[in-house]
């Protein structure tokens, strides 16, 4: 599904990714953990096509296609979704209008007709329910004035509407209360399927109790320093990252 090989990237003069290797199969859930500033969001944004980073080496293939050669919107239409660590506010544009444009862009790329307004509304209501997103948020401008938790739920709601093949969720659990965390995890679990893969960036083992990952990777200072099963997350919870700093130095 996704194959990252020796990916290196910098922003301005700073080298941030120093050679990432990661392979994900269809239907798999991978988690990435790692200290602040280690490059997790950078990786997510490069996969989504953020042009403020310069890729200086390596490559990424999504189902055999050269992902880095595609425009961000093409990646999205090809089924790549990223839930933002900091969702962006778009004043004046209603959430549902925005999503309809997004859904139709993907349908158009697949050569399908636009979704009719009634079906769209039905779908939106159903998926909003999945993450217990208050329906009034459908008619408000995208993320504008949403609380932190509402923004995160809204990201998962967008994911549920767009039905991606690969979803990258960047700290979607940060800043959520316990109920919201459950709602978000329920939303993700509901979306899990043999065709759909997830790359989940998180700082907390707790989320991984709800969304049980197939693989866990530890990222430190622009590299993946260790990979393992879900027990790796539990180990991290106990030991922290100090250990890996040593490993990296070695």
């Amino acid at each position: 599904m996704l194959k990252i090989q020796n990916l290196q990237a910098r922003i301005e003069e700073a080298e941030i990714l120093k050679g990432i290797d990661l392979e994900m199969g269809q239907g798999e859930v991978h988690a990435i953990m790692g200290p602040n500033g280690s490059g997790k969001s950078t990786l997510a944004k490069i996969l989504a096509g953020d042009e403020s980073y310069a890729v200086t080496g390596g490559g990424v293939a999504l189902e055999g296609e050269d992902l880095l050669a595609m425009e961000p919107e093409e990646r999205a239409r090809a089924g790549l979704f990223m839930g933002f660590q900091y969702p962006v506010e778009i004043p004046g544009v209603s959430n549902s209008y925005f999503l309809k444009a997004a859904v139709n862009a993907a349908r158009q790329a697949r050569g399908e007709a636009e979704i009719d307004p009634v079906s769209f509304l039905k779908l939106a209501r159903e998926r909003a329910q999945w993450v217990q997103l208050d329906e009034s948020l459908l008619n408000r401008p995208v993320n504008a004035g949403f609380s932190g938790g509402e923004k995160k739920r809204n990201e998962i709601f967008h994911m549920a509407m767009l039905e991606p093949r690969l979803a990258i969720l960047d700290e979607t659990d940060s800043g959520l209360d316990i109920d919201a965390l459950r709602a978000v995890a329920d939303g993700v679990n509901r979306m899990r399927s043999p065709e759909r893969s997830f790359l989940i960036i998180t700082h907390y083992q707790r989320l991984l109790n709800y969304i049980v990952p197939d693989h866990v990777h530890v990222m430190v200072n622009g590299r993946i320093v260790r990979s393992g099963g879900k027990e790796l997350a539990e180990e991290l919870e106990r030991t922290g990252y100090a250990l890996f700093d040593d490993e990296e130095a070695a």
Binding site: E73, A76, F81, V88, Y97, L99, A105
Partner: peptide, 30 residues
Amino acid sequence: TSKIGDDQIFYCKQRGISEEDAVSMIVNGF
């Protein structure tokens, strides 16, 4: 006074919306 930010455009693109559509959507909203 507001600006259409690169971050807003990127957010729209990540959802599959082209830059042109994103700008016209934001401006029409305005």
